[in-house]
């Protein structure tokens, strides 16, 4: 483990932390433009976080220690997840500790904690949200894992670094199985990050909420951490998407000269992906909650189909 690798890891840790709200701001801004609004500006998420951190926290009478600790756990999990995905360079010292299966495990850990926290207060909305979140999760998690498995079988490894190296540095090869995986992945991304066809991040209707219903009881610094964690999660998912489907231009191990170009390219990819997400959200309408299992089931089956196609076409 070289000093430069550790520096790179720290750099990525700090960068994702700072960039996550900006990405959210960019998506919101794109959405505003697409809907013929001016929008609040790309820096609005930072202002929101700052405001929330300064407020007094209000806790329900019934809240237990679990409820108070969960935002921190959530934040740490998402930070770790976002910092692990190799998007800038392929030698991150932390990556060997967590492979793709463990990465999905971390997402699951965060989901279980936030769902438990939502049930902690004992209001109707909290448990409603928890139940729906777990409903989305139990189909989204396998779908995500299947997408990652498709990439894993191509590169014969579940290590994120090896996957990205194989996909980015091998001679240009089109993988039919990755088409299926990509479609499934976009569906999972929408569902897991509470985006429009599945959930609405800016809703104010308690009865239709999923993610927002779970965090209804959080306020001030706790809410700030939860929101920041959501932004990190979105960034992590986009990073996974970039690492799997468009990894070209990533800096190789020890190649410092390629780093500025890699950062610029990554920024460009993220902006593009954010705009794409805003576009999808603008053209689609939120679906009924019981259409969601169907939607996620489709994603899951597509991902399985991708894996199957790989076994059949590419071996």
């Amino acid at each position: 483990m070289s000093a430069s690798a550790i520096f790179l890891q720290l750099l990525q840790n700090v960068l994702v932390l700072l960039a996550a709200p900006l990405l959210l701001g960019w998506i919101n801004q794109c959405r505003a433009w697409l809907q013929n609004r001016n929008g609040a500006g790309m820096l609005q998420p930072y202002r929101n976080l700052l405001k929330l951190f300064h407020k007094d926290a209000v806790l329900a009478h019934n809240a237990s220690q679990l409820f108070r600790t969960t935002p921190y756990i959530l934040f740490a999990c998402m930070w770790l997840a976002a910092a692990l995905v190799p998007v800038l360079a392929t030698d991150l010292p932390l990556s060997p500790a967590v492979d793709v299966i463990a990465l999905v495990g971390i997402f699951a850990l965060a989901r279980v904690f936030i769902s438990l926290a939502a049930m902690d207060i004992g209001t109707a909305f909290g448990s409603l949200g928890a139940r729906r979140e777990m409903l989305v999760g139990f189909l989204a998690e396998p779908a995500l894992l299947m997408v990652l498995f498709t990439a894993s079988t191509i590169s014969q490894s579940t290590s994120l670094i090896t996957i990205v190296e194989t996909l980015a540095h091998k001679q240009f090869v089109l993988y039919p199985s990755m088409t299926f995986a990509a479609v499934a992945f976009v569906m999972v991304l929408l569902a897991e990050n509470a985006r429009v066809p599945v959930d609405n991040p800016s809703t104010h209707l308690e009865l239709t909420m999923i993610h927002e219903a779970m965090v209804l009881e959080y306020s001030a610094r706790h809410l700030a951490l939860v929101e920041w964690a959501s932004a990190l999660k979105l960034l992590a998912y986009m990073a996974i998407g970039i690492a799997l489907f468009i990894p070209y231009g990533i800096a190789e191990a020890g190649n410092w000269n390629a780093l500025p170009a890699a950062i610029a390219l990554l920024t460009f990819k993220l902006l593009l992906a954010g705009a794409g997400l805003a576009f999808i959200e603008t053209i689609s309408a939120k679906m009924r909650i019981f259409r969601v299992p169907e939607f996620m089931g489709t994603a899951f089956l597509l991902a399985v189909l991708g894996l199957l196609t790989h076994f059949l076409l590419e071996t």
């Binding site: 438990l116 928890a130 399985v304």
Partner: peptide, 29 residues
């Protein structure tokens, strides 16, 4: 691959079950 998918689905559903188990017994009012 189909068996792996089914196994993963089982594992994810186990998460659902355990949230229900713990949440209903220990959390809430």
């Amino acid at each position: 691959p189909i068996a792996a998918a089914a196994l993963v689905l089982t594992a994810a559903l186990a998460g659902f079950v355990m949230v229900k188990f713990y949440g209903v017994i220990f959390l809430g009012q």
